[in-house]
Measured scan of single mutants.
Amino acid sequence: CHSECLGNCSQPDDPTKCVACRNFYLDGRCVETCPPPYYHFQDWRCVNFSFCQDLHHKCKNSRRQGCHQYVIHNNKCIPECPSGYTMNSSNLLCTPCLGPCPKVCHLLEGEKTIDSVTSAQELRGCTVINGSLIINIRGGNNLAAELEANLGLIEEISGYLKIRRSYALVSLSFFRKLRLIRGETLEIGNYSFYALDNQNLRQLWDWSKHNLTITQGKLFFHYNPKLCLSEIHKMEEVSGTKGRQERNDIALKTNGDQASCENELLKFSYIRTSFDKILLRWEPYWPPDFRDLLGFMLFYKEAPYQNVTEFDGQDACGSNSWTVVDIDPPLRSNDPKSQNHPGWLMRGLKPWTQYAIFVKTLVTFSDERRTYGAKSDIIYVQTDATNPSVPLDPISVSNSSSQIILKWKPPSDPNGNITHYLVFWERQAEDSELFELDYCLKGLKLPSRTWSPPFESEDSQKHNQSEYEDSAGECCSCPKTDSQILKELEESSFRKTFEDYLHNVVFVPRKT
């Protein structure tokens, strides 16, 4: 048989008469490798580009789960590009990614509803959504962080984005990388972005840091009482949809009607710091009717980097990364020049730590249904340095008659930039024990000054392991946590139920 035959053949030295091919099969003959313009397919066939392209389009058009959109890589027609490569849609070739590779997620039936953290986790790592997304989240724990972890990498949506009755959302900033909504599939009414009845939605994105392009379709905003109209108009300008909307697409009466839409800028007039305090004062603000001013709200939190936005980490279910302080308005003076500047002394802060701070007014709604208010920009203030805590785990070892090696770990709280350490030492008198000992005694162990690591005695271990207080009263049991108490109650309830079950099964009433 021919060298490319495997198993047997019907005619000697003829690659077209093989029972099976050793390498690849091409047009009725066995070959060692697939010549151009053919590609290896499933490690035994040679196919042309049209064959591989037909497989790709067949799966793409069917949208069946589990099928493969075949691509070409290293002269092979394979189910998908290997790690580190992405497909070129024009020629199906796998090309190296520039940075992290995109991950295209194809949605069944063309859309997916995100109504819980669990459903959001199914899209973790996706960068391109081939379909439409509907966000409908009523509640949950730590929602802002969970949504950002699972949806934060999405850069492109081919269909539309719909935010509907998501009472738990305060902001859409968890879509931190969303840059493009194509609108290839539109919501009824030709809408590519749809926001309806979101009672706590206050911000779409921080438009000073976020760009969003909507290729096709219109915007729809109705019944978002805490979303200011200025935020919607800003989205029109940034996304390129200005002029597409009709009169009733953006409701003037049901958007922002319960919001404090600040239209003035508060400026800080005085800032002073110490290692654990920050004193702030800002310019006074009074609405047209000074009785509408209820006070100020001061927001602050630790910020290692200057990239904080107002609604980071917030949701309507209680999660809030900001510390909020309510401040009463100052006494009002008739003389504008003698107006008191409101302020606040922030206490209990960490030394040498940068804080993000902003302040906003708290006002009631005027009778004319106009909203007044003022808010400052987010500023960054760093507390002063102070003395560091003591170095940890000092170790001293003498390696000769004239040297001592000293080692330690950095302090747990540096409280500033540590530039150097101060080492103090003092000579001590020799131990009298060394002169009084009889060095001729056998088995004498000389006193040693070398360091030995501390260890816990058996008594201390027994005390720590004991669940009861000892007789001397030195140790006591740790208080039980809520989960331990709940577990004990469940076990007790189970024992009672099981005992009742045994009584009912074992003891049967005697027939009379």
Rank of each mutant, 00 (worst) to 15 (best):
L280M: 12
Q216P: 02
Y191D: 02
G183R: 02
T309H: 12
A251F: 08
R165A: 14
S260Y: 02
S260R: 10
A145W: 03
L252P: 08
D384A: 14
T383I: 00
S389L: 09
Q354V: 06
L294F: 07
Y191S: 11
Y372D: 08
R347W: 12
N198H: 00
E146A: 13
Y305G: 10
L153K: 13
A251V: 09
T118M: 05
K242W: 12
S333F: 01
I129N: 00
K103N: 05
S171G: 13
W207K: 03
D393L: 07
G256W: 04
E155T: 05
L331M: 13
I327D: 00
E283Y: 07
N263M: 04
V128I: 11
V238G: 12
W344N: 11
W352K: 14
T127L: 07
N141R: 07
N141V: 13
N150K: 14
E155R: 15
V359Y: 02
C261M: 01
G256F: 06
D393P: 04
Q121A: 06
Q339F: 13
S166A: 10
L169R: 00
W207R: 02
H341L: 08
G295D: 05
P288T: 09
Y223Q: 08
D257F: 08
T215N: 14
P342Y: 05
G183C: 03
F290K: 03
P342S: 04
E109V: 01
Y191C: 04
H222E: 11
L294M: 13
A149T: 12
Y194P: 01
D328S: 05
L252S: 14
T361I: 05
P394Y: 05
I278A: 03
D115G: 01
H341A: 11
T386R: 06
L108I: 08
E187V: 09
D276R: 01
P394R: 05
Y300F: 04
K177P: 01
N150P: 05
N200F: 10
L143V: 12
S400N: 11
R369W: 12
S398R: 05
E184L: 10
T309A: 10
V359S: 01
S166N: 08
E246G: 15
F358P: 00
H222V: 07
L153T: 13
T371D: 05
I378M: 03
S173D: 09
I327Q: 02
N334F: 03
D249K: 15
Q339A: 09
S260T: 11
I405A: 05
Q382V: 08
V324Q: 04
Y285T: 04
A195T: 05
A120P: 03
L108H: 13
Q314F: 10
P351H: 05
W352P: 00
E236T: 13
L204T: 09
T213N: 05
I114T: 01
K226D: 13
Y380G: 01
V170Y: 12
L151F: 07
D335V: 06
A303R: 06
Y160V: 03
E368N: 02
L349P: 01
D326M: 05
I357Q: 00
P391V: 06
L293A: 08
E264W: 13
G152W: 10
E237F: 08
I214S: 03
K360Q: 01
L204Q: 01
L147A: 04
Q121Y: 02
P410E: 14
L196I: 13
L107C: 14
Y194D: 09
L180Q: 07
I188Y: 13
K218T: 15
K301G: 05
K267I: 14
F275L: 13
K360D: 02
A120M: 08
F221T: 06
G159T: 01
V170M: 04
D335K: 11
R247I: 11
E283K: 06
I188D: 03
I404G: 00
A374L: 05
P411S: 02
T118I: 06
L406M: 15
V170G: 14
E187G: 13
E231C: 14
D292H: 15
L147H: 02
T118R: 08
R291M: 12
N198L: 05
R244K: 14
R369G: 04
W282C: 01
T383A: 02
S269H: 12
S116D: 14
I250E: 11
L133R: 00
G313F: 03
T386L: 12
S400H: 13
R202P: 01
K162F: 15
D206I: 04
Y160C: 15
V397Y: 14
L345T: 09
P388S: 07
R291K: 08
K177R: 10
K209V: 15
R369M: 08
S239E: 01
K177E: 15
N399I: 10
W205S: 01
L108V: 15
S260Q: 07
K409E: 15
Q339I: 12
P329T: 11
S171L: 01
N320L: 11
T213R: 11
G140H: 14
N255F: 08
G313T: 12
K242Y: 11
G183T: 02
W344L: 10
Q403R: 11
D328A: 10
